[in-house]
């Protein structure tokens, strides 16, 4: 009698990538199913626009499929995909730069000390107090106030759970720069969210 669990085994990314490289669109589609939410979230958070995020989503997966042969198994498929999605997102932002509303580069300098100004306790469990759409808007607006270079480091490290080394590799930065930007990004976002979620 066969072990029924065998049929339910979830293939890992390595196996799916190998099948997709051999021409299986079904295997690639499984990878899409696995990561489409994360890539969309990354696109929304970097570009600040659901419409741009949808373009990023399509372009990232299309490019991933087209360049799959170049993917080397010495890194995670997801990290490779994130690199493509980050580049697509930053290209979207560069195209919008003419409206002067998007701080793409670090315009605040890395020398100054981030000083917390919002020091009130937060309301407990804001995710239960506010509607989901309302929180999404707050998070998106706060993220957009950061230069893209800080925002992207925060998103890769804290939201997409890439390691410091992976984030440094994706963004072509040193690990020290990743750590410094993550520190500042966290405090800057905290400051923005505090304005909404503080008590009183």
């Amino acid at each position: 009698m066969g072990d029924t669990r065998e049929t339910a085994v979830v293939k890992d990314d390595v196996a799916l990538v190998a099948e997709a490289k051999a021409g299986s669109y079904e295997a690639f589609e499984e990878l899409v199913n696995r990561y489409e939410n994360k890539i969309y979230r990354l696109g929304v958070n970097i570009t600040g626009s659901p419409e741009d995020a949808e373009d990023v989503l399509q372009e990232a997966f299309l490019k991933a499929f087209q360049h799959l042969a170049e993917f080397r198994a010495d890194s995670r498929f997801y990290t490779w995909l994130v690199r493509i999605a980050v580049n697509e997102s930053l290209m979207k932002l560069r195209k919008k730069r003419s409206d002067r509303s998007v701080p793409l580069e670090d315009e605040i300098g890395e020398d100054g000390e981030p000083i917390p100004r919002e020091l009130a306790d937060w309301k407990p469990n804001p995710e239960q107090i506010y509607a989901q759409a309302e929180i999404e808007n707050v998070l998106r607006d706060a993220a957009q106030k950061l230069p893209a270079t800080y925002r992207t480091v925060f998103l890769l490290r804290d939201v997409e759970d890439l390691s410091t080394a992976e984030t440094a590799s994706v963004l072509s930065l040193t690990e020290g720069t990743v750590k410094a930007r993550l520190f500042r990004a966290r405090l800057m976002l905290r400051e923005e969210l505090s304005k909404v979620f503080k008590r009183g």
């Binding site: 995710e127 966290r186 905290r190």
Partner: peptide, 10 residues
């Protein structure tokens, strides 16, 4: 606490 919560929300 609020920095930790910021990360959790995102």
């Amino acid at each position: 606490d609020s920095t930790r919560k910021t990360i959790e929300l995102y």
